[in-house]
């Protein structure tokens, strides 16, 4: 009795509103880290610039392009579903997931290379450098790590939506969950847009 009534209650605006509020909280979560980054960058300017040269700008730029492309495809997938082109919509979503996975693979190689070179928090090599470098790489791993975690959450979210579109539960009449997945994916994207210059480009 309850469940039936709950499912009758549908409020797309409310649902989207809830997602936006959740996105606020995610932004504030990262805001704390950006604040810490700002403080330590201010205190250790030279060390941060020196350490940033260790990062591979090409891989960073590639990942930026990948994420931007995937944001575009998920947006297109929403329009496709609205126009009742289910197969196209699923294809575009599949592409988004694929690109997200490629991003993670790139990240994996990037990280393992850093760790191989001894550039990770707590390593002896890093401690020889100086406090600024220690903080830079601490922040680098923590922030990109947390971001990667958000990518994984986003991918799971998109996959759930993918299955529900396949089953027809999300369709051209009822697509707010796809929109929400899209919003979340754009959030992941926009955080990266800030991480990329802060870590890779300011050298």
């Amino acid at each position: 009795m309850t469940m039936n009534n709950m499912e009758e209650h549908r409020d797309d605006i409310g649902s989207r509103f809830g997602m936006w509020l959740f996105i606020f909280t995610e932004l504030l979560l990262f805001a704390g880290l950006f604040l810490v980054y700002a403080v330590y960058r201010f205190l250790n300017r030279d060390a941060f610039q020196f350490a940033a040269e260790e990062l591979n700008t090409f891989v960073g730029a590639l990942n930026t392009v990948l994420l931007l492309a995937s944001s575009a495809t998920i947006a297109m997938s929403i329009t496709a579903l609205q126009k009742n082109k289910k197969v196209l919509s699923l294809g575009l979503l599949g592409f988004t997931v694929l690109v997200g996975l490629v991003f993670l693979v790139n990240k994996y190689f990037e990280w393992s290379l850093k760790i191989e070179h001894g550039l990770f928090p707590g390593s002896e090599l890093l401690l020889e450098y100086g406090k600024g470098e220690v903080l830079f790489f601490g922040l680098y791993f923590f922030m990109t790590g947390l971001h990667a975690l958000h990518i994984i959450v986003g991918l799971v979210f998109i996959l759930v939506v993918f299955v529900r579109i396949q089953k027809g539960r999300i369709n051209s009449e009822n697509f707010v969950h796809l929109e929400n997945a899209g919003l979340y994916w754009h959030l992941v994207d926009i955080i990266w847009i800030f991480l990329f210059p802060l870590f890779y480009l300011i050298t």
Partner: peptide
């Protein structure tokens, strides 16, 4: 992970 956000010894 011994990152040192708040540890003066690590900056």
């Amino acid at each position: 992970f011994n990152i040192g956000f708040f540890d003066p010894a690590l900056g």
